[in-house]
């Protein structure tokens, strides 16, 4: 059974002449433990879709169900890495304080919280920045703080909206592999929005390609690459090149 089920989802912002339809009725599912990438042109409605899946935005039509139940509020074991990472961090808290913030109301002891924060920060390579403030960090570092915060929360489902947009190529590759590793270890379900076609193929079990605004599903591609993913081997493989060409063709349509 799928863990996330999106059915005929449509959303229109505003009413009357100012109305703008961002989602034009789209359906797809995500299975437990699966990593699904959503790719689509800029402004097509990817963030809107993610907000609906997270239960942050009530869709105008259609529905999202989570573990078989219609989403009306944010599910308990779901985390989001927001596209506007800078605005998502609290400037009066340190980096570690930001990662710890969501753990405060989870009934964890101070020691457990500290351990989770330290672990998550070391995963994203920010152990040294724990005591700094978000606004003292570069965009890419802030983005990694947001990823660490979501990981420390240990969600069953993680939604990521352009999570690696501001980091350099090497860090990006490291973070991609980190997500793949943690997904396998913790049996996490991950939904990643990205505009990077190569990244979507490298990460995903399936790629959902969206059309231009208002977004609909153009096609869902199964990514069947042999063996564990590897930044150099996988990206050079024939199957990879074939898939990325296919995705690029679908987006351009």
């Amino acid at each position: 059974m799928s863990i996330v089920e999106v059915t005929d989802l449509g959303h229109t912002y505003g009413t009357g002449r100012a109305a703008h339809t961002a989602l034009g009725g789209l359906s797809f599912t995500v299975d437990p433990g699966e990593l699904v990438c959503i790719v689509g042109p800029s402004g097509c409605g990817k963030s809107t879709l993610l907000r609906c899946v997270a239960g942050l935005l009530r869709p105008s039509v259609g529905s999202v169900s989570y573990r078989g139940e219609t989403v009306t509020a944010v599910p308990a074991d779901l985390a989001v890495v927001f596209q506007d990472y800078g605005r998502s961090l609290l400037p009066w808290r340190t980096v570690a304080g930001n990662v710890e913030f969501p753990l405060r109301d989870r009934g964890l002891s101070a020691a457990e919280r500290a351990a989770r924060v330290a672990e998550a920060l070391s995963w994203v390579g920010l152990a040294d920045a724990a005591g700094r403030r978000p606004w003292q960090l570069s965009g890419g570092m802030q983005q990694r703080v947001c990823i660490a915060r979501a990981l420390a929360y240990r969600p069953a489902v993680m939604l990521m909206d352009e999570p690696f947009a501001s980091v350099d190529a090497q860090t990006r590759a490291d973070l991609e592999d980190l997500v793949l590793k943690l997904r396998a270890e913790a049996d996490m379900t991950v939904l990643v929005v990205t505009h990077d076609i190569d990244e979507s193929v490298y990460l995903a079990d399936r790629v959902v390609v969206l059309s231009r605004s208002p977004a609909t599903v153009v096609e869902t591609l199964k990514v069947d690459l042999a063996g564990p993913r590897d930044q150099i081997g996988t990206r050079g493989s024939e199957a990879f090149v074939r898939l990325r060409t296919e995705v690029a063709r679908l987006i351009r349509r």
Binding site: R51, V80, S88, R104
Partner: peptide
Amino acid sequence: DTARVFRVS
């Protein structure tokens, strides 16, 4: 949105 997602009390 962040506070809602992480179900801050």
